[in-house]
Simulated scan of single mutants.
Amino acid sequence: MSLGIVPWRAAWQALGAAPGDGLHAELLARYAEPHRAYHTRQHLAECLALFDEHRLLAQRPAEVELALWFHDAVYDVHRHDNEAASAAWARTALLDGGAAPEVADRVATLVLATRHSVAPATSDEQLLVDVDLAILGAAPARFAEYEGQIRAEYSFVPPTVFAEKRGAILAGFLARPVLFGTQALQARFEAAARANLQQAIAAQG
């Protein structure tokens, strides 16, 4: 799926709502901010394309799709409320666009699920989280690019500190019993993700 205006509008229409003027362009501008290296339009496009392949698994596909659009709308490595701020923006935008309050609340909750701090509570949350984490199971070249992009976003962190912190984060993922809870994505990405994580942890020294 592209980042074009047509699928964007279709998702809103499916929810009986309409996006505010300039919202699509504003989101694309956010994903193109110069301090971003991974959380960019590339990541957003990859997420939307993967979701489109598995759209039929979603209970409320338009809600998941819009949650993906907003999930990294606010991103600054120096703050700790990116997901909360992104979720709040999504909720406000949906309410302003005429979406039902319960729809706006569900989309905001989906965005919050990308904090990856608690287990997803619904199948749609699980699908969204799995799509967001699919980069872990990417082909080796793309995964290496991803690791470089994350390092670029934290270029201000000294190498030894980054290696320690990054290694701990990657080890935390590797320690999970399963990385992907959606059966189709688990079959597709789990083994590759574990191999990528093991290699990346070793590279951190």
Results as ranks from 00 to 15, higher is better:
R55E: 10
G98F: 02
R41W: 01
L50Q: 09
R9Q: 11
C47R: 02
R30F: 01
A93R: 12
H54M: 07
D96I: 05
D81V: 08
D21R: 15
H80D: 12
D52Q: 15
L95K: 07
T40K: 00
A99R: 05
V77Q: 15
L57R: 13
R79V: 11
L15D: 13
A18P: 12
S86C: 08
A18G: 15
G22T: 01
H43D: 04
A18K: 12
L66V: 00
E33Y: 09
A45P: 03
A45S: 10
H35R: 08
H39E: 04
A67I: 14
F51W: 05
A58Q: 08
A45E: 13
F51Q: 07
A37H: 11
D96M: 13
P19T: 08
R60E: 09
R36M: 02
H35F: 11
G20S: 09
A18V: 14
R30C: 04
L66C: 02
A84W: 14
L28E: 14
L48H: 14
R9I: 05
L68Y: 01
Y31V: 01
E26W: 03
A45T: 02
A18Q: 12
D96G: 15
P19Q: 05
G16T: 01
R79I: 11
V77D: 03
A62V: 04
H24V: 13
H78L: 07
A25D: 12
Y31D: 02
A85G: 11
L68S: 12
A14R: 08
A37I: 00
L15A: 07
P61M: 07
L27A: 00
L48C: 10
L68H: 06
L27H: 02
L48P: 10
